[in-house]
Amino acid sequence: MGIGARGGESPAREAACPHAARVMQERDAIALNYLDPAVLATIAGLELRARLAVEGYFSGMHHSPHHGLSIEFAEHRVYTQGDDLRHIDWKVFGRTDKYYIKEYEQESNLHLMLVVDGSESMTFRSAAAAMSKYDYACTIAAAIAYLALQQQDAVGLTLFDERLTRFLRPSSSHPQWRTLAHELAVHRPSGETSVGRVCAELAERLHQQAMIVVISDLLDDVEVTIKGLKQLRYHRHEPIVWNVCDEAELTFPYTGPTMFVGLEAGGTLLTDPGGLRGRYLDELQRFQARLRSACGQAHVDYAIFNTAQSLGIALAGYLGTRNARLRARSSRVLGAG
């Protein structure tokens, strides 16, 4: 089912045919379930999971998300196995007897860089959670990428732990989403989190202004993280920070003698968690408050995502920010004109 087809139906038509309207409502209800992490967790394959999430999200919307833009030739590159034969430039082949692929660059509304935390701490998944923090982050990232590509935006991917481990430049080409989803799926989280360092490195690599969505548990030094984000801002990027947390990390529900084993570092701690709960939550809230405050000062959007929450919030957050960005750009263009 295409997003555009769903978005093209009018309320007047629904009113004229009550049966069709009921069928549509039932289908929307089913689709909305795909925003629930518990439901998504039962679906194998990140691609399908992300597409269903996006469709679920849009099942409740009644306007078209399409903003058609032109496609322009960008460059030739040597054919490699797996490339679509339709994109081979036969004229060049006739002249050079070599296969070259014609690459086009779609004129995007937006450059989107998804920065996903692939450190070991992201593997945490409490007993009650449907998926780990990393799985949740991947689902969000893939869904947004799918959504962005549907809207002709260029999407890139950065995977990192204490350093940048995978980097896909933003592209609006059709295979980009599959490549991106594949990279997310095959990555095995390890190492420690170092958001600040990665942001600084990313700022150096990205030459075009982009919206950078950092999806991480941010278990790093706050000052370093903020410093990295500020560097992104300095390079005129628009960072968005989504702090992914497990439900258990936010509530600390444990009781009885428990041995906590650090996923990245920190060793082990045998304690009665009931006696620590208050202090722990204080520490956590202080950390998040500092992040929120620092992000606000740096004009960086900051949001906390609970892995038990619907993915719709993430998608809405992205779209809201994107639209605001486009409006701002339009107003700047109009102002300049």
């Binding site: 701490s121 992201m122 593997t123 945490f124 923090k133 548990d217 278990l219 497990d246 990390e249 444990y254 009885g256 003698p257 428990t258 041995m259 906590f260 084993v261 650090g262 996923l263 990245e264 570092a265 920190g266 060793g267 701690l269 045998l270 304690t271 009665d272 006696g275 620590l276 208050g278 202090r279 722990y280 204080d282 520490e283 956590l284 950390f287």
Partner: peptide
């Protein structure tokens, strides 16, 4: 009971250790 603890892999050890440091005496 001390010997029959359960084992939990935990990401946010920083907050836990900090909380432990501050609560050790009271606990």
């Amino acid at each position: 009971n001390l010997r029959r603890y359960r084992r939990v892999e935990w990401a946010a050890m920083t907050f836990l250790l900090s909380a432990r440091r501050r609560s050790a005496k009271r606990m």
